[in-house]
């Protein structure tokens, strides 16, 4: 009775066609632009083929941006997972059901905020003189100045802390929900064997959750690619180029500093190739 219906065709084909057009047109056009030498200031252009890509590999600022992006991915993904698993396990262990609900609600709030809002909130909080987050330091040291966002050594971590504030707390809720879906028998068995609480989690529950935790990490890796708003509002890539990730550098090359749209697009194309290959491979692995 379902078999002869035209429903799958009428429901799927238009949507998929639109998605394909909307995604393939910009993607292919990005490659076309990357092979030209377009600039925002002039409408004329010519084909330069791969010279944009060749220039990129001699561009020390580009190489720096690659390195900053890699650092950003590692720092935010690792810190998010540590916070999420830590808080998730703590909630599972010591919070009553009612308290769990309260924490879950509180921990979802930061991730719902626009990144721009989150960035502002913490930019104010990190202000060296008037910020609420630097106040304890001023209090303890008797008024010494600590300016995390304008020191090259701390700026990346200060911005990353906002990302972890949003995602780590949210993922803690998910880790708790995963722990709640586990069957109680293995945990009981470990308890009867006099396992300590941390041992139960390290050797029983977390290994049981390996697959969902890896999927969670995968989601975070994808979301960490979207760091632009935070960095744009908090540091604009500074101090110097200490927090200039690839999308920030592409944006400033294409729009702020020189309007070299083609050069920026070449960078974007490299990013796209790298992420699509990496994530496709990871996804196949996660699924397998």
């Amino acid at each position: 009775m379902r078999r002869r219906s035209s429903l799958p065709v009428t429901f799927l084909v238009p949507t998929l066609a639109i998605l394909l057009v909307l995604s393939m047109v910009p993607t292919l056009y990005a490659i076309v632009i990357a092979l030209q030498n377009r600039e925002l200031s002039t409408p004329s252009y010519s084909w330069v083929w791969f010279s944009n890509f060749a220039d990129l590999f001699l561009d020390r600022r580009f190489l720096n941006a690659v390195w900053v992006s890699v650092k950003w991915e590692i720092v935010t993904v690792v810190a998010t997972m540590v916070v999420a698993i830590g808080l998730g396990v703590l909630m599972f262990e010591v919070a009553s059901p009612r308290l769990r609900n309260v924490y879950c609600l509180l921990f979802i709030i930061p991730v719902l905020l626009p990144r721009v809002s989150a960035a502002f909130v913490w930019k104010f909080a990190y202000h060296p003189l008037y910020g609420i987050a630097t106040y304890p330091y001023r209090l303890v040291t008797g008024g010494l100045i600590f300016d995390p966002l304008s020191k090259a050594s701390t700026a990346l971590f200060a911005v990353a802390s906002v990302d972890v504030w949003q995602w780590g707390l949210f993922f803690a809720v998910i880790v708790l929900k995963y722990l709640e879906t586990l069957p109680p028998q293995p945990i009981e068995a470990a308890r009867l064997d006099h396992a300590k609480r941390w041992q139960i989690h390290a050797y029983v529950t977390l290994p049981m959750l390996k697959a969902p935790l890896i999927s969670l990490m995968f989601v975070k890796m994808i979301e960490s690619l979207r760091s632009f708003d935070l960095i744009y509002v908090m540091t604009r890539g500074g101090p110097g180029v200490a927090t200039e990730t690839l999308d920030m550098y592409a944006f400033s090359q294409g729009f702020i500093e020189s309007g070299k749209v083609s050069y920026a697009s070449a960078m974007a194309v490299l990013m796209m190739i790298a992420t699509v290959i990496t994530f496709t491979m990871l996804w196949k692995r996660v699924q397998a």
């Binding site: 993607t27 944006f251 992420t275």
Partner: peptide
Amino acid sequence: SLRFLPPVAVAIPLMV
């Protein structure tokens, strides 16, 4: 996989 696409890579060509 549409979510893998870096936003800059979509935004630059679309702007043009």
